[in-house]
Design a protein around this nucleic acid. Sequence first.
DNA 1: TAATTTTAAGCAATATTATTCTTTATTAAG
DNA 2: CTTAATAAAGAATAATATTGCTTAAAATTA
Lengths: 156, 156
Amino acid sequence: MSETIDKYDVMILQKLQTDGRITNQELAEAIKLSPSPCLRRVKQMEEKGLIDGYVALLNAKKLGLTLMAFIGISMDKHTPERFEALETTLASYPEVLECHLITGQSADYLLKVIVKDMDAYQQFLLNKLTRIDGVTGVHTSFVMKSPIKTTALPVG
Amino acid sequence: MSETIDKYDVMILQKLQTDGRITNQELAEAIKLSPSPCLRRVKQMEEKGLIDGYVALLNAKKLGLTLMAFIGISMDKHTPERFEALETTLASYPEVLECHLITGQSADYLLKVIVKDMDAYQQFLLNKLTRIDGVTGVHTSFVMKSPIKTTALPVG
DNA sequence: TAATTTTAAGCAATATTATTCTTTATTAAG
DNA sequence: CTTAATAAAGAATAATATTGCTTAAAATTA
């Protein structure tokens, strides 16, 4: 099992992180390799799980999703049951983009949430988040702007 | 200028947010439309800016990026110059995936950072972050796990 | 409601692109 | 060096995207 990532693989990954719909021919040209070995490398990295998948990134503002927030959540008990129940419930809410279990004294979970407006946020908070068992504290930070926003991981 | 998003567009966006490399034929089939109007809709939404782009999502763990952190940053002065300088500097660091200007008393900025290990994190903190002009406080929360992690915005 | 206009879908032909197989080259080990 | 293994290149075929044209559906007006 060759777990080595050479310079060609790195270049492929960098390109695909920027343009996930680049044609194999263009990709091959960009990394100075012919199409067939280029495609083989891509497929191998997909199978290895290095590439999780391909997605379209949408423009939140143009879709009317103007309010983003990071929400710190504190729990009463730190039991696996509490955590699992919370995670399952949150996973069913499409406005929750991310949920992270974090270290630190101020919160147990950190959520990234996106909604239409402040009214929708209020609905989310009152009707969804604060109704989850075990949630004792909620601290919201609204996003005013996001000068850096990338899905590209630092490779190489 | 038709700013209306109908049910076909919604279905297209939902599909593309899950599989950005789906073929136009498969996409057309999925939304029950023939390939040519399907492609036309996709192109239109790309031009309108509803679709920002397409990217490959990589597996951080398999790339050896095992440590993710959210970092709250406090600034001495809240002047545009300070903010711009910080943002420009941060944008040059590939380990910084996101940078958000946020509301709240605990921090001015919230960063999402990914690095190889704790040693790399220390290097980032000491050699990069804390050396930026105006940074008075830094509070780190490490990510233990991320049960929810999607780039798909709630459409429709 | 009927006629008209507008808008979008369907169809078919062409151009691109992906994919596979075979051959050739490069690299590593003995 | 020679041999074996690995990967790249090339060429042929299959799949897909793309375009222009025709037809249908929807919306508007009289």
